[in-house]
Design a protein around this nucleic acid. Structure first.
Lengths: 143, 143
DNA sequence: TTAACTGCAAACATTTTGCAACCGT
DNA sequence: ACGGTTGCAAAATGTTTGCAGTTAA
């Protein structure tokens, strides 16, 4: 009856002890299309189980992140934000004129990044790439 | 007599009130080749004027950043890091093992970025690229 | 002179942690 | 039953701010 969220399935597969709190947090995160911060996860989870504590949310998202189930993003603005990890990696192209976010993936850039890191003696373990642009059409009339 | 730092010159040009503390902080930042955080700026400044307070450092780097004199970076690791803003663009490769920051510039990546934006109908006006890596040597003995 | 700046300490925001009680397996 | 997990409150960070005294212009 109780639907099992996609994240909970992963947890079960890995033999994690699934408490009621973890189930709720897993469901909240599976249901989220955005990139909630801990406070938002906490309040969504509280709607399902009002006696969850925020310390547990912190501990759980950290657990999930270390298990590779979540991705942690630092978009600035004070708090870390989370999204379910998927196997398709993408970067973001932001249209600063209207705030639209376009996801893209470019293997050539990815491999150049690895190469640059290697040249400096490092193995690439992550990156952050954000592009900011304005519509080319708007360009024709000035600026 | 007292050498005027490059950042102080900019401040003077803009008519900022230059106190002793601001002069010291401007000099510390002008002299820094790395990407110090506030704590590091504070301790370097304290070496020149031991009675500067860390609150003043926070206020001053924020002032400089809002004036476009400094660039503020969020490389993770808890605290914001600063560098003098220049017109020559570069990206950052962060050694997450020790916090070292290596600057790099790769025209191939730059041009790919422009191309990607164009393909989506945008003209690139800015970007943020940060690479995170660990020393390859450390890698050999486990992970 | 006086509006802006500084130092101090307290306030804040986010995240982590010690510990006793609790619960999944 | 046992060891991991939770809730709570306190601590740890990093940063901002209120206020009274100080200083650059």
């Amino acid at each position: 009856m109780t639907a099992v969220s996609s994240i909970e399935k992963i947890c079960i597969n890995r033999g994690m002890k699934m408490t009621g709190q973890r189930r709720v947090i897993a469901q909240v995160l599976s249901d989220s299309d955005d990139h909630p911060n801990v406070d938002e996860v906490y309040s969504r989870a509280s709607g399902i189980d009002p006696k969850i504590s925020i310390a547990t949310v912190y501990r759980t998202v950290r657990l999930f992140e270390e298990a590779g189930i979540l991705e942690k993003h630092d978009f600035g603005g004070g708090s870390a934000r989370y999204e379910e990890a998927t196997d398709d990696h993408h970067d973001h192209l932001i249209n600063v004129k209207n705030g639209d976010v376009i996801e893209f993936h470019n293997e050539q850039i990815e491999s150049l990044q690895r190469k640059i890191a290697e040249q400096k003696g490092l193995r690439l373990i992550g990156h952050r790439l954000e592009l900011y642009g304005v519509p080319i059409d708007d360009d024709e009339k000035g600026q």
